[in-house]
Design a protein around this nucleic acid. Structure first.
Lengths: 333, 333
DNA sequence: GCCAAAACTGGGAGCGCTCACAATTCCTCA
DNA sequence: TGAGGAATTGTGAGCGCTCCCAGTTTTGGC
């Protein structure tokens, strides 16, 4: 037997059942302004009785609004998922938007093909806006989505002018950390940077340089945010600068790698070499010793992203917002 | 200045530009049946020129189809995300549906509140169907979504009759593993089970019992799929059955815990005690020693889920599908 | 060269909703 | 008691698309 689902009740059905007109039902559904008490309760009763649910497509067609936004995760590696910070961000956005009755559609756009699909999906008008999480520069998505309200998470290198974004103050975070290390008496402070095509790669290095103005380039080695790259970078740094007594690593994961390299080299942390990370990700507290690191205000980032996006949707101009970071002191430094 | 986005071109604009009627454009867009060559190319040219994109809401309103399905992840713990198998599943579904031009909307429904939101979203008619990933029994979502085509991943305990599902043959996988252990000469084979409110908890134990019919209940200890629970369970088992020489653990993560417990107890693996896992998750190969385990056919599971869902959407009856598992032999057993 | 069948085309109706506007009712106060 | 205004209500006109049907053109067979 075919599951021929019976016709869903429409607003007219509700109107008839409640003895009012379609317009009144519509008003009742949208805030209940200018609807008399009796009418309102009759409508609510009718809705409950016949099990009415508004048809989102009809509504969207009429209002030209979909009441949903896409949360696009445009990272090749799925590593982000493991980061509890990512969940804070996602949940924060979802929550903030739920308050406005807007649904969040999580979309993965790791591969070029997926990216194309997402791009089509968005430009087709399925969503009112996009929350874009993508760290690398040169992501075609930022350009493809130029007609749609977009708020990026983190500074979109090369697009600071034309796309809104909310970012943590990486540069200042780095400054805080290096200043702290110096205050603690460390003198030979090295750095493991992130890739130069990411804001974290650029800004954290800039902050380091702000404090250590005349630092020798030999003190700086590059990583790519992976744990193994951190390990390799630290090894290289130790070879180049044997008397290094502290190292600021641009991410916790790389810092974990650095810790391993130091252990293998027989250096104690923090007695011989202090290690500082960045992100305050889950791994930071789990390391031995636990990492001194920089915490980013993910909860606030999410609410600000939503606020910015809603303003964009309302026709306002793009804007940027930089949020302060916080030094978290643990045992590694 | 307000970003008053200019009116998007509609099908009528295309029709005018191409010198044909709306109906013809529509036909051209939907497979091009019964459209003459000249008309088709004029339309395509017009579409490109004026940058036309169909309005999904209007289309959905007219067709009563949204051309999208929700992939609902209804697990409290976000641990699933870390599992590469989960990504295979998600990607597989996305891919299979993309072929039919159907979009997948990933939705997290961990908390009761999120669950309610998802439920509203789905029943409102935003999507044509639901791919449901949820291991625990008693998930209210299964019932709330009863009016909508749903295909579950894994046997939905207590709802086998009314909801479609695709599952790996856990029971047979367990049988294979225990049979293998026996064939290898192990005689005192214990088991660490999963929670009894999950299909994996029930079926893997059942498979174990199928082979070891008269096994003493003392050989069986319960875990909850976490690593620490696996460690605790193994410790308990060692205390209860000191001469245990093999243990079948219902998940790789718990098996990793069991490995730790054995190491702490000074037993070598596999010389003193063999350890077998289940899932073939990323951790399985990373363990020391690498785990002998059972692989589930995630790629096929995803395509079958999609197939079943599309059939449901077309009005067919619910159905179930059990797919074979595969023994993966590594060093731990 | 004719006719039936096949291929193509145009346009109306309708999907279920919102919004603006006009019509109606109900107050309030002089 | 009636005018003026506020609150409430009904209705028509879309939103942009698909689907169906009737009409028109093309094709092919003899």
């Amino acid at each position: 037997m075919n599951v021929h689902r019976r016709r869903r009740p429409t607003m007219d059905d509700v109107a008839t059942a409640a003895g009012v007109s379609r317009g009144t039902v519509s008003r009742a559904l949208n805030g209940g302004r200018n609807v008399s008490g009796p009418a309102l309760s009759a409508i609510n009763k009718a809705i409950r009785q016949i099990g009415y649910v508004v048809n989102p497509h009809a509504r969207s067609l009429a209002t030209q609004r979909s009441m949903s936004v896409a949360f696009v995760l445009s990272e090749p590696q799925d590593r982000l998922f493991e980061d509890p910070n990512f969940h804070i961000l996602l949940r924060g956005c979802t929550q903030a938007l739920a308050d406005k009755d807007i649904t969040v559609l999580l979309t993965l756009a790791g591969t070029p093909e997926e990216r194309k699909r997402v791009s089509r999906f968005v430009t087709a008008g399925h969503v009112d806006g996009v929350l874009l999480v993508s760290t690398h520069t040169g992501n075609p998505l930022v350009e493809e989505l130029s007609d749609v309200p977009v708020v990026a998470c983190g500074r979109p290198l090369g697009h600071e002018r034309d796309v809104s974004y909310v970012a943590a103050d990486d540069r200042d975070g780095a400054r805080q950390m290096v200043t702290y290390l110096r205050a603690k008496g460390y003198r030979r402070i090295g750095m493991v940077t992130g890739p130069p095509d990411t804001p974290g790669g650029v800004d954290r290095l800039a902050g380091y340089r702000d404090v250590l103005v005349d630092v020798d380039d030999a003190m700086i080695v590059r990583g790519d945010y992976t744990q193994t790259s951190g390990e390799a970078a630290m090894t290289r740094l130790l070879a180049r600068v044997p008397d290094v007594d502290a190292v600021f690593v641009a991410s916790d994961l790389m810092a974990a790698g650095a810790l391993a390299a130091l252990r293998r080299a027989g250096r104690r942390v923090p007695e011989d070499v202090a290690v500082a990370g960045f992100d305050d990700s889950r791994i930071a507290a789990a390391c031995h010793p636990p990492l001194t690191t920089i915490r980013q205000p993910w909860a606030r980032i999410s609410t600000e992203m939503v606020r910015l996006l809603l303003r964009l949707v309302d026709g306002e101009e793009p804007a940027a917002m930089i949020l302060p970071t916080e030094l978290v002191i643990r045992e590694s430094a």
